[in-house]
Structure formats: structure tokens, C-alpha cells
Design a protein around this nucleic acid. Structure first.
Lengths: 114, 114
DNA sequence: CTATCGTGAAACCTTGTGGTTGTAGATTTC
DNA sequence: GAAATCTACAACCACAAGGTTTCACGATAG
């Protein structure tokens, strides 16, 4: 694989899949702003608690979020490293693109690209 | 929504969903490297042509890829802008995180954060 | 101790996704 | 013109996803 490094493809799959839902992205931003309990999060959405629990579960198994049991409530907090990892992956795509453009430029002008 | 700008949530959904599959990410990198026809792509994977067509379709409706009919073949090429857009979205998350840390610092030290 | 709150997990339903095969339409090539 | 190639689309299937309701359990509050 050209665009991948330490993490496995399945991990990347999970991260992108976790981000492919507006509710989950919203949960993530809320949790980045401030740690929150699952039910505190759930009160903000027009869906049942278990549904929100599942969303948090998806974010957690993607490594984007951490869930710590604090007394009777489960505090959800963001894992910045994972977000940064994905962003770097996207950077790689842009680098690939730049390489391609350079190569095409080289091809067309028949001299080393600027 | 805090972390979103010009594009709708549904668009973001589609982009992340499109990237949440190893085959599609591989197609994208190949196409970034060089425009390719659908069947040329299909030969590289252990799946039927229609399956690859569907993957390309997903990438296309996410705006990550463009499909142009060139004679009897369909040339698939990458759309860098969309990739860059997603990366910027991820940047926003990191900025949120930084704001949070600054705010907490402010809270703890009881003076304007550095 | 009891009542309540937050959580977790199972069972279930509906829809979407990724894959298949099969058929058919255009475009080149011989 | 016939044959080969590339594409497109429909029907179908198995399974995963997102949602629901229900039940049960640990922790706090009165």
C-alpha cells in the first residue's frame, strides 16, 4: 500500500467510518470541547440513549474517543492523536498529487520541474 | 454545527464513507498517480468489474473522483480539492482541541493563557 | 434501605452496503 | 460487417449499520 504506515487498513477503515456520520462528528466536537458523560450527550440528540451509546462505541473502537468509568457515569473524552493521524494520511494523498503534477510537468517540458 | 463550513453534512458523510474502504482508498491513490480506465483498475483487484464500478461510483458521488467518457473507456481521475477539503475539516478538529487546552489553562492558572 | 440515575447488553427491525451474475449498448479493431 | 472490448444497468444475496424497545445491574441520593 502506498498511502499507509503504522496502522492497519482495518484501523483506517474504522476511523473513516466513524467520521462518516454527522451525529458522531458532532459528538466528537462536543467531547473535544469538554469531557461529557454518555447520557449528557444523549440528551442533546433526538434519539434514544442506546443509539448514542452505540455511536460512542463506534468512535471508541475507532480510537477517536476514550470512555472512562468515573463513578456511576462514563466520561467520554477525545483522542487527538487519532485525528492527527488521519489528517496526516490525507496529507499523503496531497503529496502523491504533487508528485504526479511534478512528473507530468517534467514529461511535458522535458526538463526538471521547478 | 461547529465544525463545518460550505459543504453540507451529507457531503461530508459521503466523503468519509467513501474513504472508509481499503479498496476505494487504493483506487484513489492509483488514480492520483495516473488517470486510469475502470476496467484497467478492475484488473488489479480480486473482484468483479461491476464491483469496482460501484466503488468508483461511490468515490465519484463523494466528489473525490471524476469519471470522463473518453472513447469507449471511462477515464477516472482524482479531484484534489475534495481531499484538501477533508484535510481542512480535520484541521478544524485540531484547532478546537487547541482552544480547549488554552481554555483549561486559563481556568487553572486564572490568568490569560499564554 | 429504597428509589433513582447512568450504564450496558440483548433481541429485533429496516435500510444500506459490498459483492455476485446476467444482459445489453457503444466503440474500436480486424 | 463481425468480433472483441469497455461500459452500464438490473436483479439478487448476505451481512453490517443505525435505530428501536426491553431488561438488568452498579452507584449515588434521600
Amino acid at each position: 500500500m502506498v498511502v499507509d504506515f503504522t496502522v492497519g487498513q482495518a484501523d483506517v477503515d474504522r476511523v473513516f467510518h466513524a467520521l462518516a456520520d454527522a451525529t458522531r462528528r458532532d459528538i466528537l466536537t462536543r467531547v473535544i470541547g469538554e469531557e461529557q458523560s454518555v447520557s449528557a450527550l444523549a440528551r442533546r440528540y433526538a434519539m434514544s440513549l442506546p443509539a448514542v451509546q452505540k455511536h460512542v462505541g463506534v468512535l471508541e473502537s475507532a480510537g477517536l474517543v476514550q470512555k472512562l468509568r468515573r463513578g456511576r457515569e462514563a466520561r467520554v473524552s477525545a483522542e487527538l492523536e487519532r485525528i492527527r493521524l488521519v489528517r496526516e494520511l490525507l496529507d499523503r494523498y496531497e503529496q502523491l498529487w504533487r508528485h504526479r503534477v511534478v512528473a507530468m510537468d517534467h514529461l511535458l517540458t522535458d526538463r526538471p520541474a521547478k
